[in-house]
Simulated assay, not measured.
Amino acid sequence: MKKIALLFLLNAGLFSGASKAFAQNYVLDKTIALPGNGGYDYVFIDQPNHTLYASHGTEVNVVDLKTETLKGTIGDMKGVHGIAIDNELNKGFISDGKADEVIVFDIKTLAVITRIPLDHKGADAIIFDSYSKKIFTFNGHSSSSCVIDPVSMKQIASIDMGGAPEFAVADGKGTIYNNLEDKSSLNVIDTKTLKVSKNYNLSPCGGPTGIAMDKENQKLFTVCRENKSLSVVDIPTGKVIQTLPIGAGVDAVVYDPAQKILVASNGDGTASIFKQDTPGNYSTVQTLATQYRAKTMAIDLDTHKLYFPVADYETGNKTMKPGTFKLLVYRQQ
């Protein structure tokens, strides 16, 4: 009986410890000052190379995540939005929405290799699809996607999206999922045929922006500005199976598969954090205080740290204070 009781206590302690670790809160770790002025949008982490890219006005700031210091800057652009990386070719790709171009750079030297002209306007989100080995831009002003061959560094096709595309995510098996902000729906793109194969209604979601994926459990996570919510979508059926409340002004969402945690970054100065109870059910664990207009973010899946690009603003308006651009870094307590 003593052995059984001891075993029970040890197991209970282990489960208690696991539960505690699972529900850890995030706290501010540090800030990383970044140079330059202008607006900011996507932030992207190249996980294999421990490098963070933050779009910032007419340039991209590059941060070494091992030291959390500025590594360099890629500049001389007109209006930067997103960043994508093809590690096999050691090439990076930046969507310049104002120039209607994609800028290609060497990820080792950060030197610009070439500029690819696009035949559709307003390139915003950009991703690399590992299955087709192609780069896809999502063009909000022209309701389209441009497809780029990273080897030839030329646009090879375009896709009619049927609405204004926002964030996108690829499953690595030939499918891309992309939110249509103005239609409150989700496009399913076949990267073999370069066509939209399906479109799912995201109701009650309104104005979807960021998207993330749980590949193992076949779930998508879409954040919605109009009704301030996070929608859990079942991939096989395209159905919204749960709607979670979040803050105002959301832009991005990330999923940590190891921790089974969801984070939505809101422009109102909060981040809504949820844990996965089951693959079809999620519950709130923390409303993290960030900073006004810290609406995009990235997660380092090795350290589980969160990185929010942000600047300081004049009181009572949306005027950015010069020289205040930075990353807010949060770690688990």
Rank of each mutant, 00 (worst) to 15 (best):
T109N: 10
K20V: 14
L28K: 15
K173G: 01
D106S: 09
C146Q: 08
T193I: 11
Q276C: 07
N11Q: 11
I148G: 08
L9T: 10
E59W: 01
Y313E: 12
S95M: 10
S16I: 13
H141A: 13
L262P: 01
E226W: 12
D96F: 02
N87Q: 11
M77E: 04
K66R: 14
T175G: 01
L110H: 09
L186K: 03
N61C: 11
G280F: 08
T303Q: 08
M77D: 03
S145I: 09
I4V: 15
D124P: 00
P117Y: 09
F15C: 14
A271Y: 05
A99M: 07
V250N: 11
T209Q: 08
G174L: 11
K30L: 07
T58I: 10
F8K: 08
D256N: 15
L6P: 00
D46I: 06
Y330K: 01
K66E: 10
V112I: 14
G249I: 02
A164Q: 14
Q286A: 10
E314F: 07
P208F: 10
S16R: 03
Y255S: 05
G174Q: 11
E226P: 00
M77V: 05
Y200G: 01
K260Y: 05
Y40V: 04
F221R: 03
N90F: 07
P279M: 15
I127W: 01
D41F: 05
H141C: 00
K20N: 11
G172H: 13
D100K: 09
N187D: 12
L34P: 02
K121I: 11
V254T: 11
T284R: 14
K183F: 00
S231L: 10
H120K: 12
K318G: 09
T69R: 15
P165L: 08
P165A: 08
T222D: 12
F308N: 06
K78V: 13
T243H: 01
I299A: 03
D234T: 10
V169R: 03
N139A: 09
G79Y: 05
V102R: 01
G82H: 05
L306G: 04
I116E: 04
K183C: 04
G122Y: 08
S143I: 04
H81M: 07
V254D: 04
A170I: 03
T324S: 15
K78Q: 14
I107T: 15
A123S: 15
A294N: 07
K195H: 12
T237Q: 09
Q259T: 06
N11D: 02
G238W: 09
V263I: 15
D149P: 13
L194K: 06
S144N: 08
V223D: 12
E68Y: 13
K318Y: 14
S197I: 05
I299H: 00
V169H: 02
L110S: 04
F105E: 05
